[in-house]
């Protein structure tokens, strides 16, 4: 049976009829043809399908499409803005953080949420935040370095940085 799903994906309104058994992952890839979001297990065991739902990184393979109604969803396709790559994307491409590139979208999305929430995460904190994203190629070091480089590039948008610097008690601990 088809159900109607209205939500926002990458800041654009979406209104589609989808099979009621589908996960958010399946709707993104199959119904919206946003194939940038990947899957490695479909059971919540790898992190490849991570997307942001209302700014928070979750695994789209374990989100019912019907439960995404009214939510704000961000995928890797929504990272670049105004024709420019996100600093994380620039740094990942430049610094070898993406080898086969298959885990990359999930990691970028997860790192974006971290940088949006915390102004100055330590290396340990970055590793912790990315610990739910398996990568088989890199050994993670170039990924972590790319996140640090993006931090230096000012990944968190300029207006939000000072605000969050005061409101994040857990950061860096």
């Amino acid at each position: 049976m088809k159900v109607r799903l209205t939500c926002s994906v990458n800041q654009e309104p979406v209104d589609v009829l989808v099979d009621d058994y589908k996960t958010l992952l399946e709707v993104l890839r199959e119904d919206l043809q946003l194939t940038g979001t990947k899957h490695g297990c479909e059971l919540g065991e790898c992190g490849a399908c991570a997307v942001l739902v209302d700014g928070s990184p979750v695994l789209s393979c374990l989100v019912l499409a019907v439960e995404s109604a009214g939510r704000r969803i961000t995928t890797v396709e929504g990272l670049a803005a105004d024709g420019r790559l996100h600093p994380l994307q620039e740094c990942f491409a430049d610094l070898g953080a993406s080898q086969c590139g298959y885990c990359t979208p999930g990691i970028l999305i997860t790192a974006k949420a971290l940088l949006d929430a915390e102004p100055n995460p330590s290396r340990e904190r970055i590793c912790e935040a990315l610990s739910g994203n398996l990568c088989r190629c890199t050994g993670y070091l170039q990924i972590v370095e790319a996140v640090e480089a993006a931090l230096r590039l000012g990944a968190a948008s300029k207006q939000r940085q000072p605000l969050l610097a005061q409101s994040e008690p857990g950061a860096g601990q």
Partner: peptide, 18 residues
């Protein structure tokens, strides 16, 4: 930067299931 770097970080690399 590897030549396919941009494609990989934008999700545009087309894997078989894509």
């Amino acid at each position: 930067r590897r030549v396919d770097g941009r494609a990989k970080v934008t999700g545009q690399t087309r894997f078989a299931d894509d």
